[in-house]
Amino acid sequence: MEHIIRRHPFGWMICRRLFTAVLMSLAVMFVVFFTIRMIPGDPAVNLLGADSTAAERKAMRATLGLDKPILVQFSIWLGGLVHGNLGYSYAYGKDSLSVVTPALCNTMMLGVSASILAIVIAIVLGNFGASNNKTVRQFSSWVEAFFLSAPQYAVALILLIVFTVQLRVFPSGGLHNTGVTDIGDLLSHLFLPSLALSLAPGAQMARSLKTSLLETRSSDLIPSLEARGLSSRQVMVHEYRNAIPPMITVLAIQVGSMLGGALFVENIFSIPGLGQLVVQAVGLRDFQTVQSSVLVIALIYIVVLTLGDIATTWIDPRLRRNDHV
């Protein structure tokens, strides 16, 4: 076994990360299922109305499977997940997968656009923060502190009021204007919510980039590269190569922040994503849709963390050697 690990450290690392991801996913499924069951209210009453009879409510609970012991409900739900069945949403009148999938696609579009903006913000602020100019460094630090301290829902409200209500530069909500489906219209609708989600993650990545660049420039690496006759552009490539792995790790972690912020931002900008779906499903006491949505969000976070870990190790070979020491 030790021989295999030493010959294939990267493959062994991937197996370990995937095994950890599976364990985390099982733990998330357990927590999500039992936490959702703690939400106050009776789904049968929400579906049938307050004027329904006790017999009708009892029959509805039996239809929903809520009359069975909680562990039996969990085993049935887990068995359905294995076969790709997230359950049936009686509030929406169709299976939960059909309800969650369109919302997931919209949230993914928002998340990808927010991640791109966060990377752009990180590169700009990170380079400003590592500048030799003291004024530029101070300005970068102030902007980072502001971006990190501003709540995403507050930023979303400010952007909505300023750029849609006052200036009327961007549309107020949704993903498309009525009857319009071109890419330009979609991007104009995504820009403000993506910006609201990207400021804090971008500032966090900027700090990571700034720290990595300053550490690399103060080390013996740069003088040795210059002594070997490398051009300034080649030296810069080595600087960024050392700075990229920490940025990837921070970006993967910040995905959780963006997914959490989407709960507020999607509702503020009326985007039909997972965040808006969760809020609506909680109001309807739709257990199946809530637990399916929360589970999908958690699994996305686990997958992104795992991929970020693998990408970081692939870029930096030193981590492969340290992983099995």
Rank of each mutant, 00 (worst) to 15 (best):
M1F: 12
E2G: 15
I4S: 04
H8A: 12
F10G: 08
M13P: 03
I14V: 15
T20N: 14
V22N: 07
L23Y: 10
L23V: 13
L26P: 01
A27S: 15
V28A: 15
F33V: 04
F34V: 05
I39T: 13
I39N: 07
A44S: 09
L47I: 15
S52R: 08
K58L: 14
M60K: 12
T63I: 08
G65H: 12
P69H: 03
L71I: 12
Q73V: 09
I76N: 14
W77F: 15
G79W: 07
G79M: 09
N85C: 04
L86R: 01
L86K: 00
L86W: 12
Y88V: 02
Y88H: 12
Y92Q: 14
G93R: 02
K94N: 13
L97V: 06
L97K: 06
V99K: 03
L104D: 05
T107L: 09
M108Y: 11
L110W: 05
A114V: 01
S115N: 00
L117A: 10
V120P: 02
I121P: 08
L125H: 06
G126Q: 02
N127W: 07
A130G: 09
V136T: 13
V136M: 07
E144A: 12
A145N: 12
L148T: 03
P151E: 07
L159A: 08
L160Q: 09
F163H: 00
T164V: 06
F170P: 08
S172T: 08
G174M: 01
G174A: 07
L175C: 00
L175T: 02
T178S: 14
G179N: 04
V180F: 04
D182A: 05
G184N: 05
D185F: 03
L190K: 11
F191T: 09
P193S: 11
A196D: 10
A196T: 02
S198I: 00
S198E: 03
L199I: 01
A203N: 04
A203Q: 03
Q204M: 15
K210P: 01
L214D: 10
E215M: 09
T216G: 00
R217F: 11
S218M: 13
D220G: 11
L221S: 10
L221Q: 12
E226G: 00
S232V: 10
R233S: 15
M236Y: 12
M236D: 12
H238L: 07
H238V: 07
R241Y: 13
I244Q: 09
P246H: 08
P246I: 04
M247V: 11
L251T: 02
G261I: 08
A262M: 08
E266R: 02
I271P: 03
G275T: 05
V282M: 12
V282A: 05
G283Y: 06
L284I: 01
T289Q: 01
Q291A: 03
S292L: 10
A298R: 02
Y301C: 11
V304R: 06
L305M: 14
L305Y: 11
D309G: 10
I310C: 11
A311W: 03
A311T: 06
P317I: 01
N322H: 14
